[in-house]
C-alpha cells in the first residue's frame, strides 16, 4: 500500500499532486499519514481560497498532534473533499484515493516537485 503512484508528483512536506489539465488534485502521502498516526480531524480550505505553494492551507490532527498541510501548488480551490469531515480515518486508509483533500485551479505550472522515485529516495533519507 505504501507504493507511491507513479502518475503523481510529490513535495518535501509529503503532499502529492495529480495534474488534470488546468487543475490539480492534492492530498497527503502514505508516508505522511503513517507518521501522523490515527488521524482524528482534517481541517480543509474553503472553495474559493487562494493557495500559495509552500504555505499552509489546512491542518490534520491526531490525538496528540496537529500538523499543517502545506500546499504544493499555486491556485484557487475549486472543491474540497467534504467527506473527510465525518470520516477522517479515510486519510489513513486511502491517502492517495478517497482521502484526497482539495481540487485546485492552477495559477501556474507547479515547480520543485519530485517524481515517485525521487520521493521514495527522499523518504528513505528522512527516516534516518
Amino acid at each position: 500500500m505504501s507504493n507511491n503512484p507513479a502518475e503523481l508528483l510529490y513535495s518535501r512536506t509529503h503532499e502529492w499532486t495529480r495534474l488534470e489539465g488546468e487543475e490539480a488534485v492534492i492530498g497527503i502521502t502514505w508516508f505522511a499519514q503513517e507518521s501522523l498516526g490515527d488521524i482524528t480531524y482534517v481541517e480543509l480550505p474553503r472553495a474559493g481560497d487562494r493557495l500559495t505553494a509552500g504555505t499552509e492551507f489546512g491542518s490534520v490532527e491526531s490525538v496528540k498532534a496537529a500538523s499543517d498541510l502545506i500546499s504544493p501548488v499555486n491556485g484557487v480551490v475549486v472543491a474540497v473533499n467534504t467527506a473527510m469531515e465525518n470520516a477522517p480515518e479515510t486519510l489513513n486508509s486511502a491517502p492517495f484515493g478517497d482521502g484526497w483533500l482539495a481540487r485546485v485551479k492552477l495559477a501556474d505550472k507547479p515547480e520543485d516537485l519530485m517524481d515517485a522515485a525521487a520521493y521514495e529516495a527522499f523518504c528513505a533519507a528522512e527516516k534516518h
Binding site: T40, Y41, E61, S62, V63, K64, A65, A66
Partner: peptide
Amino acid sequence: TLQAREQHIRRAR
C-alpha cells in the same frame, strides 16, 4: 478530547 485545538499542542495557533 479534541486536545489538538489547545495550547499545549498547537501553541501559538
